[in-house]
Each structure stands twice: as C-alpha cells, then as structure tokens.
Computed example of a mutant assay.
Amino acid sequence: MVVSGKKHRLAIIECGCDINMMVDLAKAADLVLMLIDASFGFEMEMFKFLNICQVHGFPKIMGVLTHLDSFKHNKKRKKIKKRLKHSFWTEVYPGTKLFYLSGIVHGEYQNQEMHNLGHFITVMKFRPLTWQTSHPYILADRMEDLTNPEDIRTNMKCDRQVSLYGYLRGAHLKNKNQIHVAGRGGAHP
C-alpha cells in the first residue's frame, strides 16, 4: 500500500506485483505501508519493491505485521515478531516502525490498533525527496472523456480527448510537454 498526500489530501494506492506499477508508485509515494503476513513471512516482491524505492530516494517505509492471531501460543508469537522485526530492520533501516495487528475480530481489525496506526500516519513528518521535487507528476483521482459520443460510436479506436482531475506535485508541468501515463507506456503530447 502506498500513501501519497499532503496535510488533508491523502491517496491510498494498493501496489500489485507488477514491476512497472512498483516503479511508478515508488516515484510518487510519501509513505509505503508494507503489509507482512506473519504466518508466511517476507515475499520476494517486497524485496524488489524496497530496491526500487532505494533508487528513487527511499520514501518513508512502515511495516504492518498481520495474521498474528494464527499463532495460538504467546511464546511462538513473540519469537516470530522478534524475528520479523529484525529482518525488516535489516532490509530497510534499524528503527523502522513496525506495527502489529493482533488479528481480525468479527471481520475487522481491532479499533484501538487501527486508531493508533491512523494517528501515527497523520502526525508523521515527510522529508522532500529529490526525484519528487525535480519532476512534475500528477496524481489523478478522476477522469472525464470529452470525446464526442458520435465519434466513439462510429469508430471505437478514435483519438480521445480526456480531462484529468487531481493533484500536481513536484516541479511545474510545462505546457506542450510530453507526459508518461503510468500503465499505458510511452510518452504522450
């Protein structure tokens, strides 16, 4: 999960296992929440994403350890938590925050644990990342197709005119510059 936003603007984007999506999100993320299944441990995609983040300036990273309820004995649970915390600190940096979600009750995580996680995120301070401050990028939360419906009806592959709404971050976006649309490939005027 990638969190990007300033003050009251917050966008939460779930990152799949697609390497291109990882690169695009590592460039724009202010905070990365790495969900780690305690019953399974670290997955290879986590290590890939951490390497990608290092290349793009390393946004804040926070771990969230889940499925702790799958361990019935406290001794085993403590041992797993300690081992995963040590491994997480080795991969990111010592002292990286790691939250523990004890388990799901009636289909939901416990309110106090979610409140603590939300509070920690809201008071967190972010440092400016070099890549983000030197490159303009848009986080679009809405798109409208302005193309004439008759043109679409007659030719489904006609050129479309769209309007994006969202947030411009980083440097200024210059008029007539080519842009890269994540997931669409190539640069577009």
Results as ranks from 00 to 15, higher is better:
M1L: 06
V2A: 11
S4W: 03
H8G: 11
R9L: 11
C15A: 13
C17F: 02
V23S: 06
V23E: 07
A26E: 04
A26D: 05
A26S: 15
A26V: 02
A29G: 04
A29Q: 04
A29C: 09
D30P: 06
L31T: 10
S39H: 07
E43K: 08
M44Q: 09
E45Y: 09
F47R: 13
K48Y: 08
N51V: 07
C53D: 03
Q54W: 12
F58P: 02
I61P: 06
H67F: 15
H67R: 12
L68V: 00
S70I: 07
H73Y: 09
N74R: 05
N74A: 11
K76N: 09
K76T: 11
K78F: 01
K85L: 12
W89I: 03
T90A: 10
T90H: 10
V92F: 01
P94E: 13
G95V: 10
L98A: 03
L98E: 01
F99E: 08
Y100I: 08
L101P: 05
G103W: 01
V105M: 04
G107Q: 08
E108I: 08
Y109T: 04
Q110G: 04
E113M: 01
M114L: 15
M114S: 12
N116E: 12
F120S: 15
F126P: 02
P128R: 13
W131I: 02
Q132K: 14
T133R: 05
S134Y: 06
S134R: 13
H135V: 08
H135E: 06
Y137M: 03
A140D: 03
D145K: 00
L146T: 09
E150S: 15
I152W: 01
Q161H: 04
V162A: 14
Y165T: 09
L168R: 02
L168W: 00
R169T: 02
A171K: 15
K176S: 11
A182V: 02
G183L: 02
G183R: 03
G185H: 02
G186K: 02
G186H: 01
H188P: 05
P189V: 11
